[in-house]
Design a protein around this nucleic acid. Structure first.
Length: 203
DNA sequence: AGTTGGATGGTCT
DNA sequence: GACCATCCAACTG
């Protein structure tokens, strides 16, 4: 599990830094709703709006590990990767490509199925059409549910946020990224904040 | 094992 | 016209 906090318009790393626009309007809406945006043309990122309306604070879901529905996540991933491939090459339906992608995805450990913000979007078929939806509504196409058991706060590790070098200090260094210690389900560079003395023996 | 480049499109300057 | 809250394949050593 891995998340990042984006505080509000004063946060130079936040999409809200230039005020309200058509893209980030959901951030300024009520908490518990989704803020979904597209990055690099081919990925979607899922945020949960947090503060009271107008505060424009949100949490980016960077990585999760499946508790259930793993097969559905894999199927969604295959669909996403195939669509991305179709977009890049002009290739029409290439059955061999689907087979290769399906094989590769099937081999992925469950812990890395959604170990990155773009991969979370792929695993849950997050589309920009979900922008602004109430994630707490019982009939929402994408929902938040309470965890079966609470997380031990002692396991939560703080670090700097990823991919926001443009924001400058203090925003690039602030500990606004939260993950679980010794959790394989986080995005790249896993040794970055490994707390243990030996990281080679663990895996 | 680590680095690099390519794909891709909405958004903002 | 540049920049991305990215990922992966194809390189290099």
């Amino acid at each position: 599990m891995e998340t990042e906090a984006y505080l509000g318009p004063e946060d130079r790393a936040s999409h809200a830094r230039s005020g309200r626009t058509a893209r980030n309007a959901a951030m300024f809406g009520p908490p518990g709703h989704a803020y979904v945006y597209r990055v690099y043309g081919m990925y979607t990122c899922l945020n949960v709006v947090c503060g009271p309306p107008g505060s424009a604070s949100a949490v980016l879901v960077r990585a999760v590990a499946p508790l259930e529905g793993e097969d559905g996540m894999r199927a969604a991933r295959v669909r996403h990767d195939l669509a991305a491939r179709r977009a890049t090459r002009h290739a029409d339906g290439d059955p061999a490509a689907r087979e290769r992608i399906a094989t590769r995805v099937a081999r992925l450990p469950a812990t890395v199925l959604a170990s990155g913000p773009g991969l979370v979007g792929a695993a849950f078929s997050v589309e920009t059409s979900l922008d602004g939806v109430d994630l707490c509504a019982a009939d929402a196409p994408l929902r938040l549910e309470e965890a079966p058991e609470p997380t031990d706060p002692a396991r939560i590790v703080e670090s700097a946020r990823i991919g926001i070098a443009y924001a400058g200090e203090p925003w690039t260094s602030r500990a606004l990224r939260f993950s679980l210690a010794a959790d394989p389900a986080v995005s790249g560079r896993p040794a970055r904040h490994a707390p243990g003395p030996s990281r080679s023996s663990a895996t």
